[in-house]
Design a protein around this nucleic acid. Structure first.
Lengths: 334, 334
DNA sequence: CTGTTAGCGCTTTCAA
DNA sequence: TTGAAAGCGCTAACAG
């Protein structure tokens, strides 16, 4: 064999030539094989093999107006809450030949606008946001592009386009109801600075009926910040009975700091988290938390975008997937 | 004002018309402003404003042969080890107007080939892999495309193209040296099934000089798997003195299970992790681990890709960023 | 400094 | 079932 490897990557033109068919026939053999004869299809297949052809999807997308890319935007990748969602989103899209373009806003409206503009310029077939789009300018711009947008991990009756999530206010009030039912009085909060954590706090206070000592930490929080938060809460209220946290990592920090201070959980102090991280069930004591179906959110978001791409304009556009309060040992009465 | 919003998004053509200049002048005013007169530049700027123009970067890339996208490939997004790297990679690229295309291999060669083909079809200006490219077929194909590739989080003297990482063998032997120097004899390992964790194990055994009881868990491990692993190790060797873990989460699980069993760390059992996760320093006891500069890896990988895009063909292509063993209380002699 | 011309690689018409 | 023509939106190359 003496096939000199072509210096530049093979194009569909090369494939057509090698197969002895026209360019468009080669295109159809690959993109719409059912309307091409068996024989031709096979010859094209061999030509692809021989040339090592990989289709340039950017070029195809220019004419067909589908990039087969979906933008996924997170506050920051390190916010572990969203990882299962982004993972299943990416995996579901990949199954259908779509790739994810990743963007980060760092909880900043300016950056949110920038990253969304950068995404729009790449003509994504859909955009999936973790959280609601904050910037009004960006909302307006997105609406005008007509690109399908799925906001997730939150809920709104008047979404930009589609929304898949749950009500953080309701999470907060569910937690308040739970702690009230346990007869706990002196509750404190360790809560992230982000919009969703603040919403849960509001929901909690509304149901609780009065203010509670609160330490706000920079989103999304960490074990270290949780440890510090307990110190600060105890300084404010030495006879604290419970701490409600906006993430499992913060709650974990509370558990560690409680142990360091010789406080027994839940006897001396009850603790709850949020997110049902995979470590929550296996801590000592196991952590009471709020479970959310992260992978389910990602899957549904992907399906909604894909459905739109195929022209099925779904009827419903707001999906409340709810949440579940999971009681474990960290709040269980002896 | 009575400017009817155009139903289809504005193109550069519309901008040029609105500004009263030719298409290419409008293009230059945006992409290479220094060679356009101040006056023209301003008129184009206003036309962009008026039309709400967002450049179609896919179309531009077709001709210029730069997509301004970089592919980033992880085993799975939930492998938290890589998150700081992907985060800084994405952020560094975004600063220069590049976006990240995300792919997942799920530790599977078949999927690795698929995801790399999907990426190549999108003409990325570079590819950053977390780990080495496993599939020989994919290595060959990547080499032929000529796309800059940076393999990370590992090291090789004969990389596919560029490599930014460190030697897992050396990490293993450093850990062995450390435990030997502590005079510990009966050591066990809890280790992930992935290639890098296995390499660290090999490095450890080579320096240790003999086999040790080992529990292998599915990569990347979790707190729960760590807890189970300690049970299994103790069943094999009841008088175990130390456990070397392939991740901080596994080590954390060992700590929790030790506490559940009434074993004191480090007095009864010494424990080490890997990765220096942000919780490691704040656990009780704080966790001895191996620190790796995750964000630094991402930043350097981005810079290498960007340098190649600008034509600077860097001399060096293998960067060993090393690692640092961080001794904390979980192995410290009383 | 500005414009004209010719594509990038592919897919959508339309016609055979 | 196959093909020819046209052009997606933009930029490189070469004039003026």
């Amino acid at each position: 064999m003496n096939t000199p490897t072509p210096p530049r990557p093979a194009t569909l033109h090369d494939v057509a030539e090698a197969a002895g068919v026209s360019l468009i026939t080669a295109s159809r053999a690959l993109g719409n094989p059912s309307i091409v004869s068996e024989k031709t299809r096979e010859r094209v297949r061999q030509a692809v093999e021989a040339t090592g052809y990989i289709p340039n999807l950017l070029a195809g997308g220019l004419k067909s107006r589908r990039s087969r890319m979906v933008a996924g935007v997170v506050p920051a990748l390190s916010v572990s809450q969203f990882l299962p969602t982004v993972q299943s989103l990416t995996a579901t899209l990949a199954q259908e030949g779509y790739q994810l373009l990743l963007g980060q806003t760092f909880y900043d409206e300016q950056r949110e606008e920038e990253v969304l503009n950068a995404m729009i310029g790449r003509q994504p077939d859909g955009i999936v946001m973790m959280g609601l789009v904050q910037s009004g300018k960006a909302r307006e711009r997105l609406r005008r592009t007509g690109i399908p947008v799925v906001e997730t991990w939150d809920f709104s009756d008047r979404p930009l386009d589609m929304v898949v999530g749950f009500s953080h206010l309701k999470v907060g009030s569910a937690l308040a109801g739970y702690f009230l039912s346990r007869g706990l009085q002196r509750v404190g909060m360790a809560t992230g600075s982000d919009h969703r954590a603040q919403q849960r706090r509001e929901g909690f206070l509304a149901a609780w009926g009065r203010e509670v000592p609160t330490v706000t930490v920079s989103a999304p929080g960490s074990l270290e910040l949780g440890r510090q938060a307990l110190g600060q809460l105890l300084a404010q209220q030495p006879d604290l009975q419970a701490v409600v946290c906006s993430s499992d990592m913060l709650a974990h920090g509370i558990l560690v700091e409680a142990q360091a201070r010789g406080l027994r959980v839940p006897v001396d102090l009850a603790v709850s988290g949020f997110g049902n991280a995979d470590f929550a069930a296996h801590l000592l004591p196991s952590l009471t938390t709020v479970h959310v179906d992260g992978p389910g959110i990602g899957r549904l978001a992907a399906e909604l975008v894909l459905a739109r791409c195929k022209g099925h304009s779904a009827g419903r556009s707001a999906f409340d997937l709810g949440f579940e309060l999971i009681e474990r040992d960290s709040t269980r009465r002896a």
